[in-house]
Design a protein around this nucleic acid. Sequence first.
DNA 1: TGCATAGTTGCATAATAGTGCATATAATAA
DNA 2: TTATTATATGCACTATTATGCAACTATGCA
Lengths: 139, 139
Amino acid sequence: MHIIDIQAETIFQALSDPIRLRIIRILSTTNEEACLCEFVDSLLEPQYKLSRHIKILKQTGLLSASKDGRWIYHRLVMSTDYLKHLYQTILMIPDPDGQYAQDLKRFQKRMLLRDSGRCRVGVQNKDFQTDSMPKSHKN
Amino acid sequence: MHIIDIQAETIFQALSDPIRLRIIRILSTTNEEACLCEFVDSLLEPQYKLSRHIKILKQTGLLSASKDGRWIYHRLVMSTDYLKHLYQTILMIPDPDGQYAQDLKRFQKRMLLRDSGRCRVGVQNKDFQTDSMPKSHKN
DNA sequence: TGCATAGTTGCATAATAGTGCATATAATAA
DNA sequence: TTATTATATGCACTATTATGCAACTATGCA
C-alpha cells in the first residue's frame, strides 16, 4: 500500500531529479510497465541508485508496483486528471541533449527480451549491476 | 537579461517549493503581473524570503520582470507551449488545505489598491516587511 | 541634499537530498 | 537446502537548499 501525496510541491520535488524524470518519461512515452533490471539496462545507472529513485516516486504516488516472483513491475499512477496532464506536460519539454531519446532506444531494445510480455532476465549490462561494478563507470 | 533553462529537472526543482508554487498559482490564476510588496501582502511571508524565491523563478525562466520606478512587476513567462501546459497542470492540482484559496483572496483584495493598474503603495501588512518583524511571526 | 521606501543580498546555520559501498532480503531454481 | 539473483537499504559523506538577520542598493520625493 502506498500513500498518495496530494501536495503539489511534493510531486514537483519528485520530478526535480534527472534520473526520476528519465524513468517517468520512459513510462509515459511507452505506456508500459517495467521492472528495475529493465531500467538499469535502459538508463545505464547502477541498480541501487534506480531502486532508491523508484522508491521516492512510489512514495510520492507517481508510481505503483506489482510483484511477480522476483520481478517487480512499476507503472505510472494515472488515477487523476492532473497526473495525466502532468505526464503530458513532461513529454512536451524539450530533450536538448538527446538523453531521453537514447534511454528510450535502449528501453525498446530491452523490451525485445520480454517473454509473453514478462521480464525473464536480470540486468544484461553487468557494468551497472550492484556487484562487480568496474571503477571506470563510477561518477 | 535572464537565462531560460530548458532542463526539465530545473523547472520542476523551481516548483518544488511551496512558496514558489503559491506565487506561480496566483499569477496563473489571475493572469496578472505583480510586484514584491503585493506578494508580501498576499502570501504573508517576509519580503526577503519572497524576493529570493522570485529570483529563483526568474533564473529558471518561469518569471520575467519589468521595472517601473521603485516597483518591479513580475509575470509568468508564456513563451512556449510546454510552459502554458505546465501552468494549467499546476492549477489542476488540488489545494486540500485551502492555502491557495486564501492567498488568492488576499491578492485580489490587495489589487483593489492599484491605481490605474499600477501599484502605488508598499507592503501594507507591516508584520511581514523586512524591518520590525515581530517575533511572534517567525518560524 | 536627505529621507523614506521597494527591493536585494552576504553570511551563518540548519535541514534535506543524492551518492557509493557493502550488505541484506526475498524468491526461484538446482 | 543451498546457490543464485532481483531488489532493497544502512551507513558515511558530500552537496544543495532554505532560512533569518542585518546591511545593502536604488529610486522617488520633500
